[in-house]
Computed example of a mutant assay.
Amino acid sequence: MGSPKTPSSLMDNMLGLLRVRIQRGVNLAVRDVRSSDPYVVVKMGKQKLKTRVIKKDVNPEWNEDLTLSVSDPNVPIKLTVYDHDTFSMDDKMGDAEFEVKTFLEAMKMKLDGLPNGTVITRVQPCRTNCLAEESCVTWRDKRVVQDVCLRLRNVECGEVELQLHWIDLPGGKGL
């Protein structure tokens, strides 16, 4: 009795796994008395993952890895911050969206031999993205890493800092 196999058509379409490290929230909105109990929900297509709740903290440190399977590089990642409430529905504390296309393009380059810390490309904040500051795609520790700081929309204040890493799949389509 082996473990159930993933349908090969699913594996054929999968490019690999994107590890999203939700690092921290900065100056998140207050939704309870003087504080909030925030957690983050990350969605990409039909996938939905969430972090743990951090009690009474508008500057929470999650440092939590969420892993998404990527089959279409054009699908944006949506991030929503909520305030956990015990006796009522959780309050929304803002949302953001970001593209992974630039990061995936950098993954296709032959980068072996580059000095550690080399900036491969930069993504500038603009009206069409949620970046709070310039986001650099960097060659670090023999892999491509992107640091992202997102300004939350539909809320009075708050940012979420995260980092992207790529995981190649054996037998996957690859980039």
Rank of each mutant, 00 (worst) to 15 (best):
V40F: 08
V40S: 09
V40E: 02
V40I: 14
V41Y: 03
V41R: 14
V42S: 08
V42Q: 04
K43N: 05
K43L: 02
K43E: 06
K43A: 12
M44P: 00
M44N: 11
M44F: 00
M44K: 11
G45Q: 08
G45H: 07
G45K: 06
K46F: 03
Q47H: 09
K48P: 01
K48Q: 11
K48D: 01
L49H: 12
L49E: 13
L49S: 02
T51K: 08
R52V: 02
R52C: 05
V53E: 01
I54P: 04
I54K: 12
I54A: 01
K56G: 05
D57W: 01
D57R: 11
V58R: 14
N59Y: 14
N59D: 05
E61T: 14
E61L: 15
E61R: 15
E64A: 11
D65Y: 04
L66A: 03
T67G: 00
S69W: 03
S69G: 13
S69P: 03
S69L: 03
S69T: 11
V70P: 08
V70E: 08
V70K: 12
V70W: 11
S71F: 14
S71W: 13
S71K: 10
D72A: 10
D72G: 09
P76L: 04
P76R: 15
P76M: 08
I77M: 11
K78I: 02
K78C: 01
K78H: 12
L79C: 08
T80W: 00
T80M: 06
T80Y: 05
V81P: 06
V81F: 07
Y82T: 02
Y82S: 03
H84M: 05
H84K: 15
H84A: 13
D85N: 15
F87G: 05
S88W: 06
S88A: 09
D90P: 04
D90W: 04
D90E: 06
D91M: 04
D91I: 00
D91F: 11
K92T: 06
K92R: 08
K92F: 00
M93N: 10
M93E: 03
G94D: 07
G94M: 04
D95S: 15
D95E: 13
D95A: 12
E97K: 15
F98K: 07
V100M: 14
K101P: 00
K101G: 05
T102Q: 14
T102V: 14
T102M: 05
F103P: 12
F103E: 03
L104G: 11
L104R: 12
E105G: 02
E105N: 13
E105S: 10
A106R: 09
M107N: 12
K108V: 00
M109S: 11
M109N: 08
K110F: 01
K110R: 10
K110V: 07
